[in-house]
Amino acid sequence: MVLLLPDGAAASHRRPSALSYARQLPLARTLARAGRHDGLAVHVVRYRHRGWNAGADPAADAEWAADEAVRRYGDVPVCLAGHGMGGRAALRAGGHAAVRSVLAMAPWLPEAQTPAQAPEPVKHLVGRRVLIVHGTRDGRTSPELSYRLAERVKKSNRDTCRFEVHSDGHALRRYRAEVTALAADFVRGSLLARSYARPVADAFAAPPPLGLRMPLAAGFGRSLRP
C-alpha cells in the first residue's frame, strides 16, 4: 500500500484544494502500474484541513490513513510518500506500526526560531527505509534543512538516503520523469522486495555526505518506465 500525501499550506483551516489532490494522480497511476503484478494499492490521502497549525495536523491524518489501510486490507506494509507539507507529514507519521518506508519529496521543514524549539523527531524512523528527494533550486522549502534532517536520521537509521535534483524547483517539474522513476524504484524495493536500481543501492550504502547528496542523473529509470 502506498499512501500519497499532497502539499498544503503552512497555516490554514480551509478545506484542501481539489488541485492538490489532482497533482498526485499521475504519480499514483505510475506507482499502481509499477506494482500491478504484486497487488500494490495506491491511494491519495485527503486532509481534513489545508494547513499545519492549531487544529490542523496532516501527520495525524496520515496516521489515520495508515490505520484505515490496515482495517481495509489487513496486515499490509505501507509506504508514506509526500510532497512539500506532505513530505513532512510522511516523516512525522513514519513511526506507525504498518509503515515500512517513507518517501519525502521537497519536504517542508520549518527552521527552529529559538534554540529551545525542539527539532523534528527522527528516532521513530528506525527500522524504516527513508528516501528524501529535493531540488537544489527549491525556493519554497529548504534543501539545506532536508539535508540536515537526513543527517540526523542517518545517525540512527542506516537505511536512509537523499537525492538532489540539480537546478530543479519545488514542484520537481524539470525532471519529473526521473523523480517519478526514482519513486517507483524505491516503492518496489522497499515494499515488494525487488532489487533497487544501482544508484539507489549505492546511495543507501554510501556514508554521509555522499549518500545524502546523491545526484539524480538525467534519464534515470528509462528502462523502468511502463
Rank of each mutant, 00 (worst) to 15 (best):
P77W: 08
P207F: 01
H124N: 09
P115F: 03
L131N: 00
D57E: 08
G8A: 14
S195Y: 03
H124P: 05
R23Y: 13
A205R: 14
A201H: 11
K154T: 04
V70T: 12
A184S: 11
P215L: 05
A81I: 00
S17V: 04
A22C: 12
V165H: 13
G84T: 01
K154H: 11
R72T: 10
L210F: 11
S142N: 05
T180S: 08
V130Y: 00
A32L: 10
D75T: 01
L31G: 02
R29S: 15
A34N: 06
A28P: 06
E144A: 13
N53K: 10
A203K: 03
H124I: 09
A89T: 06
R174D: 10
R222H: 09
P199S: 08
L216W: 00
A56K: 12
H37T: 13
R158V: 07
E63W: 10
R50Q: 14
A89D: 05
Y147R: 15
L149K: 12
P215R: 06
V153N: 04
L210G: 10
G74Q: 07
Y147D: 09
P16A: 11
P77C: 08
V126N: 11
Q117C: 11
L80N: 05
A193H: 09
S142C: 09
H166L: 15
A193P: 05
K155P: 03
L91T: 05
P209K: 06
S190I: 00
G55M: 13
R140V: 15
P107A: 00
V165F: 14
R173S: 15
P208N: 07
G87M: 10
G127W: 14
E111Y: 04
R188Q: 11
V122T: 11
R188V: 01
T141V: 13
G221L: 04
Q113V: 05
R137C: 15
A206W: 03
H134A: 07
M105P: 07
T30S: 09
L91N: 04
P143E: 02
A11P: 02
A10P: 13
A97G: 12
D7L: 13
G39R: 04
H83M: 13
R48Y: 05
V179R: 00
K154N: 02
R48W: 06
L80K: 03
M85C: 09
R50G: 03
D202T: 12
Q113P: 00
E111R: 12
I132F: 07
W52F: 14
A181H: 02
Y21Q: 09
V44L: 06
V153Y: 04
R100W: 12
G189P: 06
R213P: 10
A98L: 03
